[in-house]
Design a protein around this nucleic acid. Structure first.
Lengths: 338, 338
DNA sequence: TCAGTTTTGTTGCCGCGGCCAACATAAAAC
DNA sequence: GTTTTATGTTGGCCGCGGCAACAAAACTGA
């Protein structure tokens, strides 16, 4: 059995082109870019419109001779992705529509104790906006942080992953551009989310991505993990408050340089508490990378600040949920069929 | 247009099951495991048999009531994968059949000057064995090392990649098991080939995988690259001859530990000149990894010696070539159609 | 103004290929 | 022998993509 049938594949293909050219592509445009026949494209688009994922949006503007096409766009009153971020001291919930636009976003103190309240508000917001929940994903440090929580789930399993991974998935522009980047998130732990060619790398067992205890200097300061010279002692929140930023940047850059020699990435994205420190951290990180980088045939990666701040993990989780609909619209279209 | 049509996908699916259960699976068995209808499976297998990829091999042995199935196996007189390894001082050529078995393997001194002679011998061996060349892949340090070389090419583009990447692809058992591992190859350069879930990770621009100049100690010895304390100065061939092995193991382990915190791998494979030193290197590497490893929810990766020695890159390149046929048998079946 | 040209979207038909049901075959159980 | 169970093949159905023809909508040029 095919992992995804031809029809499902082509529906996703058509839908992706609509998502990437909202209001600016017609059936014929999809046909041109996909190589599918115009009649096939018409049939696919009709099905997407019938299922409430796509709408017609006037005529395409185009100079020159010939009939104008019918512009297509994603509907913003269809599926809603729901994302949570559950940490020790705070929690957040976020709702996005099919275009990835934020329709609800709220943060609360109290960690997992606040989740129930946030969930009720989010579900109310989904209803008020005329949306329909399509999936729930949750950023959480540890899986058992979820045990006992009852989350609205759209009849599908709730997806769990790390904060850094979901925060990496909030970077819509980079994902759409198919970039390869490492999202480095500063916080109580130092997390990393690796994206290759616009797709999240998940370790085999969902482990990995925890780089706070990579050793920077065997003779460095003692760490709470019982060892010495961990990255956290240079670039963790305590170290950032008490130490100079250039020391943190150098330590981070040294660790990242090792990754860049192995992995061939386009970009380092600084998130979490690093985001607002980017102007001070980036030069030192860049210098440290330059001291080890050996790219004879590739450009040195850019270093940039994350687009979103504290809300990034919840937002990324919500966007990941709607991206599942974009990746396999047929499942959404037949969700009542069984 | 689908990247690979339904028929092509199902042919590959059926063929993969034959490859993974040689001589021990029937049409009905494929049908059971794939979910495809028995009639569909019959049609697929007939096409694979007609194209010379699969043969019937007696009856399956099974206890209990019912008719015995017809056992299926890969043919060993069909497509041949041709792999080269072109280095500065030596070169190698390798031929494998569809099962991945080595049918020809020869090494020569002289680097790229020896390639023409090796190629002629390999092509002769392919003919003598009644095989048909299906693809050529080449392990080479730099792409321009290939400029001007005329290689037998089966009418398809010659694939180029690093020695470490191809050596990683020679590990058939690990690939089949879907393991995630980093193949570390010691040599003039220290290369690394990353395999995730049985699939080779290729950087965006084919860069990466060159870890010889990751910094181990900023105050370390000067390196030919102009910087100080590079891994090569601890674990390169010169350092291995003059220095103690435990120092090399510790340096390697330190670098690998950084990767393991990020990547969540099952295994480190030691290849190249490290392969035969594994008994001495592995304990130190393991110790150094243990000093930084933070796997609360995953096992510490195993460290093992590569299955093959100097012939690994050429063998891996040859196996990669036949794997293309296994991945898309329809292209092989229709190779004369255009 | 109106035919000619170009582009868009729809409709009817064909064919590939997967699924289903029925049947022939082979081996064991009774 | 008959019955039961598993394997492999055959014929027919149908979903869905491609093709060709046509209608519709815009511009171009006498």
């Amino acid at each position: 059995m095919s992992p995804i049938g031809t029809r499902a594949h082509n529906l996703a293909l058509a839908l992706r082109h609509v998502a990437e050219n909202p209001g600016a592509i017609s059936r014929a445009g999809i046909s041109d870019r996909t190589g599918l026949n115009r009649s096939t494209t018409s049939s696919l688009v009709d099905e997407l419109i019938g299922g409430g994922l796509v709408r017609e949006a006037g005529a395409t503007t185009r100079s020159g001779v010939g009939r104008r096409g019918t512009a297509l766009a994603l509907r913003t009153d269809g599926p809603a992705g729901l994302g949570f971020d559950v940490a020790a001291e705070h929690a957040a919930a976020c709702v996005v529509d099919l275009t990835g636009r934020v329709r609800f976003c709220r943060t609360a103190a109290g960690g997992r104790r606040a989740v129930g309240r946030l969930a009720r508000s989010a579900v109310a917001a989904i209803g008020d906006a005329g949306l329909t929940l399509c999936g729930t994903e949750v950023a959480a440090g540890v899986a058992d942080g979820l045990a006992g929580l009852r989350l609205p789930d759209a009849g599908r399993p709730v997806v769990l992953d790390s904060e850094a991974n979901f925060a990496a998935l909030a970077e819509d522009e980079l994902l759409r551009a198919g970039e390869s980047y490492l999202y480095v998130s500063g916080g109580h732990d130092i997390g990393a989310g690796l994206v290759v060619d616009g797709r999240l790398y998940r370790g085999r067992h969902g482990g990995g991505g925890d780089i706070g205890h990579v050793r920077v200097d065997p003779d460095g300061p003692a760490c709470r993990c019982g060892r010495r010279g961990c990255l956290e002692q240079y670039a963790g929140p305590l170290a950032l408050r008490s130490g100079p930023l250039d020391r943190a940047g150098t330590a981070l850059g040294g660790v990242l340089a090792g990754y860049l020699n192995l992995l061939d990435l386009d970009r380092i994205v600084l998130g979490g508490i690093y985001r607002d420190l980017t102007p001070w951290l980036a030069p030192e990180i860049d210098r440290a990378i330059g001291a080890q980088f050996r790219g004879t045939r590739r450009a040195r990666p850019e270093i940039s600040a994350a687009t979103y701040g504290a809300e990034a993990p919840a937002l990324g989780a919500a966007r990941a949920a709607v991206r599942e609909v974009l990746a396999d619209p047929l499942r959404w279209l037949t969700r009542f069929a069984g």
